[in-house]
C-alpha cells in the first residue's frame, strides 16, 4: 500500500467522502489532507458540494400517511398487475435472450478475427493459402456451375490458373516479401478485432441490463 501521497485525486476524495476506501488508505489520505492545504481545500469543497446535493434531495413533506397509503393499496391488491407497453425503441430486444446475443457477438468477433489474422498470416507466408485451395476445390467440384462460369469469364479455366490469379491478387497487394507491411497488417487486424470485440461486449452488457430491468418486472409481477 502506497503511504506517501503527492496529491489526492478527485476520485479518491469522493471515495473518502463516501467511506468507500480501505481503512489503511483512508488513514493515509486523511493524514495527507491535514498536511496539504491544496488537498484540504479541494476536500472541503467536495464535501460542501456533496452536502449541497444531499440537502437538495431531502424528503418531500407531503407524503400520505401510512394509513391512507395502505387503504389505497389494499383496495388494489386483487388488481392484476399492469404491464407497461414494450419499449418502442428496441422491442426486439425482449425477444432475444442476452446470452444468445452474447454468443452471436462472440461468434462474429471470432470470425472477424480469424479472417483478418488468417489473411495477414497468409500474406506473410506463415500459413498455406487455404482460401485459394478451397476456391480451387470448389471450382473443380462444381464444374458447369455459376461459380465455374464466373471464373471462366475472368479467364480462369482450371485450378492452376485460379491459383496463379489469386497469387497475383495477393502479390499485387503486398509486393514481394514486404514483411513490415504484413506485420503492420497483422497488428491492425488484431487491434480491429479487439475493438470490435469490446464494442460487442459493451453493447451486449447494455442489452442484458435492459433485459434485466424487464426481467425484474416480469419476475415481480408473476
Amino acid at each position: 500500500m502506497k503511504t506517501h501521497i503527492e496529491h489526492v485525486s478527485e476520485n479518491e476524495l469522493y471515495l473518502l467522502q463516501d467511506d468507500e476506501l480501505a481503512p489503511v488508505r483512508a488513514t493515509a489520505i486523511r493524514a495527507h489532507i491535514e498536511s496539504c492545504p491544496d488537498c484540504a481545500e479541494r476536500s472541503a469543497k467536495l464535501a460542501s458540494f456533496c452536502r449541497h446535493i444531499h440537502q437538495a434531495m431531502l424528503e418531500p413533506t407531503e407524503c400520505s400517511s401510512d394509513g391512507a397509503f395502505w387503504v389505497r393499496l389494499a383496495a388494489r391488491l386483487d388488481e392484476p398487475v399492469q404491464q407497461h407497453p414494450r419499449s418502442a425503441k428496441r422491442p426486439w430486444l425482449e425477444l432475444i435472450p442476452s446470452f444468445i446475443l452474447a454468443a452471436l457477438g462472440g461468434l462474429l468477433d471470432t470470425l472477424v478475427t480469424a479472417v483478418l489474422v488468417g489473411y495477414s498470416l497468409i500474406n506473410l507466408g506463415l500459413l498455406p493459402d487455404f482460401g485459394s485451395q478451397l476456391v480451387a476445390n470448389l471450382q473443380s467440384a462444381l464444374p458447369g456451375s455459376w461459380f465455374a462460369a464466373w471464373l471462366a469469364q475472368l479467364g480462369i479455366a482450371d485450378s492452376a490458373a485460379l491459383q496463379a490469379w489469386l497469387d497475383g491478387l495477393t502479390t499485387s497487394r503486398i509486393s514481394g516479401n514486404e514483411l513490415g507491411l504484413g506485420l503492420v497488417l497483422l497488428v491492425l487486424s488484431v487491434l480491429l478485432a479487439l475493438v470490435v470485440g469490446l464494442l460487442l461486449i459493451w453493447n451486449v452488457q447494455r442489452v442484458a441490463q435492459e433485459q434485466d430491468i424487464r426481467g425484474v418486472r416480469a419476475h415481480a409481477i408473476r
Binding site: C63, R76, E79, V81, Q82, A220, I221
Partner: peptide, 15 residues
C-alpha cells in the same frame, strides 16, 4: 413517487 410506491407494493404482493 407515491403512484410508483403503490405499483411497487402491488408487484411485491403478487411476487
Amino acid at each position: 413517487a407515491e403512484d410508483v410506491a403503490q405499483d411497487v407494493f402491488i408487484k411485491v404482493w403478487h411476487a
